[in-house]
Design a protein around this nucleic acid. Structure first.
Lengths: 348, 348
DNA sequence: CTGTTAGCGCATTCAA
DNA sequence: TTGAATGCGCTAACAG
């Protein structure tokens, strides 16, 4: 801050009133005469006065800040979620401090949490993909902080506030669609098994193929790492493991892209020899060769919902009320393109 | 903040020292006996004390915050830039307030700037793609604020601090490569003409084809909007305008993807009938069909560099020094894949 | 090495 | 409708 910031006192003196009155004008309070208000506003304008947020927060005892802990922005979902979060926070008048982590590094997380505590954030949004085993640790930290937290995309518990995409439903939609298209042996390339989202998508697939009476299910499963090369390698393993395979549900579009390349190597025509459904509906998916059938998420809405919720929690707290933990689900939907339409040929 | 936050006074009393001493311990100052320090730290621990950032900032007269104004995170470049910014800010101990805008809406920007001013940010990073005509307006706002600003990816001036990718060089690299591969009539699908980055990439292409003695250059140019459909449409127009075309430099990978689809429609084989070079090297590019030759940027490094610079500016200011505005360029490089290798066939 | 005094800029009592 | 006094939690400047 530059040394000569104009303060509320400067304004007050210039206007010939007390700092009190200026404060009232600043906070749009009714008990100021129109005339005085006008004059003060003029002075504020000409002096270029801008209220010091720190002083205000200190005095008010509130920060008006929400802390967001996010995961690298390289992935489609997380980056869109953040967009939704930012927009909604702005709309509600909160400001946002952002911290990004790429792995779950307890030391780093601890230091970030310490920071957020010092900053007296009114709420925390945990927008990091859920990987098992660290939530107990986290929950303990959060409970010490006494700061409300909302998690994005993790499984429900009875003590957490969660805003999540129904990934299992997505897995069901994809698999069911392939069955309806007449595919008879549907495999899956899942994401890393430690990821909750991968687990759920897998669970959706598993339900459907089990209901269909599949046997030897394990042969139909291969694990990838979300990136194209693992989709490439994954499809090859899958075909090795079970040569009968005629369709694959792939847990994200990037791996599906890799699998498409593998299928060209293997001489498998899509969708005739092999049906493919991805997950995410990234902007490129419609332009894959062939265009990719996939499950569309709305991560922005997910982010926005999380913000609305934390806002509700914070507001309730101010009146001494504690809301009940719950999970709110967001629904994905199927987007059908060529890669899974057996009736048609390869042409566009 | 919950009502019963423990303060520095609580700690002082519990430790039987003055608040001053506690403050010294907090700030790692040498003039405290090891013994006292130890004791105070114990108390801090057991009481779960966490210093109030607002009080500290108010008293210190500094905020330790950098404001980042970014552009939607959907695009490859901007989202990676932000990642780089966040990481470096964290490393340097700054905290980050983030504001995202999607269009240049003066009212919104004005309100964001007002907010940043109130928050007494020590510097601003303007990470919004440069579109002509708004910089004068911005510069005026910033100069009133007296807050140092660094722009990412805009053209140089002699009054701005800029950290930019050398897009023109990228355009040259792409076009030169196509020439070296023996392509004789190289068109371009550019980004929106108002974008600085699009202009520069176009300029690079233009230089090379001009040096090569091309005529009727205008027929070789089509403008897209960065998205796949415009690449699709763009290639079709290009072939209409100049049937001799045997290669295209496309200003980003997403449009290149669209153009690949168009070339299949048109029966043009890549790279035999048509060479293609994109820009960005998104993760999917290596898995396009065929794999895409492209220009690789390092947006994270760009973001990190911007942060280091603003840090230097801020630090210099504290000692009363004003650094000289300048631009620092970051170099892109060519990544060669199948889509531009005339010697090879379509196979992988 | 430690404590005292003062003030950062604002909002919240309470009086007038 | 307005003003005076007080405190938010911390650090800086000085003294001891």
């Amino acid at each position: 801050m530059s040394e000569e910031m104009v303060t509320i006192l400067d304004v007050a003196q210039a206007a010939g009133v007390s700092t009190q009155t200026v404060s009232r004008v600043l906070n749009d309070r009714p008990d100021v005469s129109a005339e005085t208000r006008e004059r003060v506003q003029q002075i504020i304008e000409t002096l270029g006065y801008s209220p010091n947020v720190f002083a205000r927060n200190l005095s008010r005892g509130r920060s008006n800040i929400i802390g967001v802990i996010g995961y690298g922005l390289s992935y489609f979902g997380p980056s869109r979620v953040l967009t939704g979060i930012e927009a909604k926070l702005y709309e509600l008048g909160f400001s946002l401090t952002l911290n990004l982590i790429d792995l779950f590094d307890p030391l780093q997380v601890e230091s970030i949490l310490y920071d957020l505590l010092s900053r007296r954030v009114e709420g925390i949004i945990w927008a990091v993909p859920a990987i098992d085993q660290y939530f107990d640790w986290l929950a303990e930290k959060f409970s010490k902080m006494q700061t409300p937290v909302i998690y994005i995309n993790k499984g429900p518990t009875d003590s957490d506030f969660v805003s999540a995409m129904d990934n299992k439903l997505g897995g069901r939609l994809a698999t069911t669609h392939l069955m309806e298209q007449g595919y008879r042996r549907i495999g899956i390339i899942t994401g890393p098994s430690r990821w909750w989202e991968a687990q759920e998508r897998l669970a959706g697939w598993r339900e459907v193929v089990t209901e269909a009476g599949y046997s030897n299910i394990d042969n139909l499963i291969v694990e990838g790492d979300w990136n194209p090369p693992s989709g490439d390698a994954g499809l090859q393993s899958l075909v090795d493991q079970d040569p009968e395979i005629d369709a694959v549900f792939i847990s994200n579009d990037q791996m599906a892209l890799g699998a498409m390349q593998a299928s060209r190597h293997l001489g498998l025509r899509i969708p005739d020899d092999l049906g493919i459904v991805g997950f995410d509906d990234i902007p490129e998916a419609a332009y894959f060769y062939p265009p990719l059938t996939t499950i569309r998420q709305d991560p922005r809405a997910l982010g926005a919902m999380a913000v609305e919720w934390i806002n509700a929690i914070v507001k309730a707290r101010q009146t001494g009320v504690d809301l009940e933990p719950d999970i709110s689900w967001s629904q994905p939907r199927l987007v059908v393109r060529k890669s899974s339409l057996r009736e048609s040929g390869m042409g566009e």
